[in-house]
Design a binder for these strands. Structure first.
Lengths: 359, 359
DNA sequence: CCTCGGTACTAATACGCATTAGGCCCGCGT
DNA sequence: ACGCGGGCCTAATGCGTATTAGTACCGAGG
């Protein structure tokens, strides 16, 4: 009976302090809050809105300096246009070489291209204890989240995935079932490097890698074997030399033993520290040998930034493109689709450390 | 007996997919959503809740793995326990020396100590055009925001401040009226350095600074003058040497001219590039002079990371403490209070580039 | 005159949580 | 026996936006 009174009583949007809401815009434009949402949300294509009304709304929004509340947008089962980036290792390491900067370049660029803004969550040094147990949860402020760092706890990731929250992990990862990831195609890249060696006549090739069976490592090993097999060169685990401590292990003596056994080329896996690559180079010069002439070396990755001397043959990980691909995958998930190709191709780097086999 | 009926009519929380809400926890615990909110929000002190009920709620929350939705928390005029960090210059510069890393160390630590998590917003490379005009707005996802970088646009800052959103700027700043900031006490620090010179007998001192009248620079200049005046040494603008291009300006000839005019000590402002400091050192050695013996040099700031030779006398900016102070100020604002002391004391660094005046 | 199909808009509701204003019950005082 | 206060809890509402299910109007077709 008194619904009219009841309505007018409440509908008068009191001129509030603070930031204007859609209701204020609506009042100024003489339309409903719904219409404001429709116009400002760009949904005016689905629901017909006259040009006149649209103009009024936009004008009012402009005059009031309206800006949407990201929390409210997000809550209303809608989107934020924000992509979260979560890093479990330090986001700001002392050594910039260990930071994710190269990836983030691509991430930021592609995100802008896709119409997203970025929000970075830092989960590293937060103590880890209680707060850390649900650290990943603040990712829910965004529409989706990119996860960096191999140490992301599987249970927290699983939780997000199970809840249907869009997550993309940077780097191959199997652990939480159904987790989307984007990684480098190490298999193909390693195969290409080995293929180059074989094409130049090498038959006896060994692989040196550190003793840490992460996907990035096992993929390279697989590519190594595949490259040999594809060229008809028999291979096996005996060609793989795993060493925990390259410094002590990759000595001139070891090197000479290999050469004596007929080895003409050595392929080294790239790691965080590049310890193996460094040690091997030292061993070569300590043994009085010359790299392209007496033995060929290849690096499955990029040389360390302080590398001197000839450019090592190998491949480069296109970090920026990887970041961009991750964003594309995430955008696809956010849009309700499925990401397509998770693998990003690496670029073969000819280099100068590979030559024909001696003699 | 009939409370169940009454409740079941509307309150039947359908077993939903996705993450549990407080309603689910409430149902499992056999209490109301309000109670869950009260217990989980720690407000059980204001409103009495029995230990038994609290236990049940906590148990249910644990079993369901409940985690609060940060967007909803924030929307409900409540708090997020999130502090935003907004950087207008590149968050990930190629040169880590130019990054905010040292500040962020303190920020992160103090935030954790105050029970906040961090959210980083990157506003640098986002193109700037339309999206950039409201870039700072996503800060509203957090309870408050720390702003880094001197290029933060005043209008966007004013907007937040006017809306009563807690903002703290890192570095002194006057522009938007009422903006809270935390900065280093350059005046006192510079005064101390000059005081040290005067105490050692120097009377003719000049200040070299780059030509950029930002607060950080004018503060140091003020401290320079105050230091001299406090010791009864007359001073004036003629003692200040502003140079836009230190490389060309701070020549051995210039140096000799100063010495001939009786100058015994030179105070240099620290800048991004440390160009003035470098140029002056080069000039001293090119002129065949020795630093502590023939002329004293002091640096109003920290030496560049690649600095070699004796430690320059001057002061150090306690970046981590500055970051921590900023967080404390922000926490105070978020809590509805007012930040107290905005100035952070710098540490005098004795160094080895200052001695008694020659002769 | 009465549908029918648009067009242009709005009312109502959901989102998940926090908070305010009570409601109920029990024990104590008078 | 009645009121009253305090302990414990809940109903109801708001936060600002997005979305769904309409309503009101209008011109055309029967």
């Amino acid at each position: 009976m008194d619904e009219v009174r009841g309505q007018t009583r409440r509908r008068v949007a009191a001129p509030r302090a603070g930031r204007p809401r859609q209701a204020e815009v609506a009042q100024l434009a003489g339309v409903s809050q719904t219409t404001v949402s429709l116009v400002l949300g760009g949904k005016a294509d689905d629901v017909a809105i006259s040009a006149e009304t649209r103009r009024k709304v936009l004008g009012a929004a402009e005059r009031l300096g309206y800006v949407p509340d990201p929390a409210a947008s997000r809550l209303a089962a809608a989107r934020n246009n924000l992509l979260g980036v979560f890093s479990f290792t330090a986001t700001f390491p002392t050594d910039v070489q260990h930071s994710y900067y190269p990836f983030l370049v691509g991430v930021e660029q592609e995100a802008a291209a896709q119409g997203f803004d970025l929000v970075l969550f830092t989960g590293s040094s937060t103590g880890g204890a209680r707060a850390g147990a649900h650290a990943l949860h603040r990712a829910r402020l965004a529409d989706g989240c990119l996860v960096l760092g191999r140490h992301a706890p599987a249970d927290q990731l699983r939780r997000l995935v199970d809840d249907g929250f869009p997550v993309v992990h940077l780097g191959r990862r199997d652990e939480p079932e159904g987790l989307a990831w984007v990684g480098a195609d190490y298999v193909t890249a390693a195969r290409a490097v080995v293929g180059d060696l074989v094409a130049r006549g090498h038959r006896e090739v060994v692989l040196v890698c550190e003793d840490d069976p992460v996907p990035a490592s096992t993929d390279r090993e697989r590519g190594f074997h595949e490259g040999l097999l594809a060229a008809g060169v028999p291979t096996g685990p005996e060609r793989v030399h795993r060493c925990a401590d390259p410094e002590r292990d990759l000595t001139p003596a070891r090197l000479r033993a290999w050469l004596a056994a007929g080895v003409t080329a050595i392929v080294v896996e790239e790691t965080d520290t590049s310890a193996a690559w460094r040690a091997l180079n030292t061993a070569v010069s300590d043994a009085g040998l010359d790299c392209p002439r007496d033995v060929s070396l290849a690096l499955l990755g990029s040389p360390p930034p302080d590398h001197e001397g000839p450019v090592p043959t190998g491949f480069d990980l296109p970090r920026a493109r990887l970041g961009a691909a991750a964003v594309r995958a995430l955008a696809a998930l956010v849009a309700g689709g499925r990401p397509d190709e998770p693998l990003v191709e690496c670029a073969f780097r000819p280099g100068a450390t590979v030559g024909p086999p001696p003699r």
